[in-house]
Design a binder for these strands. Structure first.
Lengths: 110, 110
DNA sequence: CACCTATACCTAATTCTGTTATGTATCTTT
DNA sequence: AAAGATACATAACAGAATTAGGTATAGGTG
């Protein structure tokens, strides 16, 4: 389990954008948990990776955040900035394309 | 074209192993060209990346190399070390698994 | 009550790996 | 003769994730 660590490099940014675009608002901790579940513990996003990534994407203007108090704890929800939706879509398309290329290259192994 | 740059991180190692396992011996320059062709210029491996990678994999014992003079120029062919075939297969399987996970996560975008 | 676990955020030091930029050398084409 | 393709190589740099730490609240258990 959790063996996809090294492969994550470079793709994490775009994975986060895709999750937020397709699932609506999410908060950092939730992204880690949902991803873990969805991939049967094979992709285990670390918090040391996810939070800097979210901050970076917000700084770049692709995301914005809203704070909400839930059960006494503050949650920071991230949303895709609709004014950046074209850029977000294009980044996700590039990742989809890359996945396609990987499949092409690994075809004999799939 | 050549827009998959940032995604490559972490996967290059294993891509090289897969190409060598499935296509027999190849040399560095050839790996760059063949990959470019196979992906319609979308994955453009740089020589600054491929040569250190090949050296690293050889140092780790997963590959070995043989030199050959072709048309007056020396080519360095790399081969999968058969005593490491299990390890090589397992690394390739992990990458294949990761690709599957990416597809799961990006499903709404594919 | 004290302790542990889960939830939820954050950052810093380090490591790894690919990019960019060079350099060398031979062969082929113009 | 010059330019471009082939073919190897390395060094400085940048970016991103890992590892490891820290803060804080809520809920359950011995």
């Amino acid at each position: 389990m959790d063996s996809n660590k090294k492969f994550l490099n470079g793709t994490l940014n775009t994975i986060v954008l895709a999750l937020l675009r397709d699932n609506g608002r999410m908060y950092g901790y939730e992204i880690c948990q949902k991803t873990k579940e969805a991939t049967n513990n094979q992709i285990n996003l670390t918090e040391g990776a996810i939070y800097p990534t979210l901050h970076r994407l917000e700084k770049e203007g692709l995301l914005f955040s809203t704070k909400e108090k839930v059960n006494g704890r503050v949650r920071k929800y991230y949303h895709v900035n609709q004014s950046s939706i074209k850029e977000v879509n294009s980044q996700i398309n590039l990742l989809a394309q890359f996945v396609g290329n990987l499949r092409t290259l690994l075809k004999p192994s799939l």
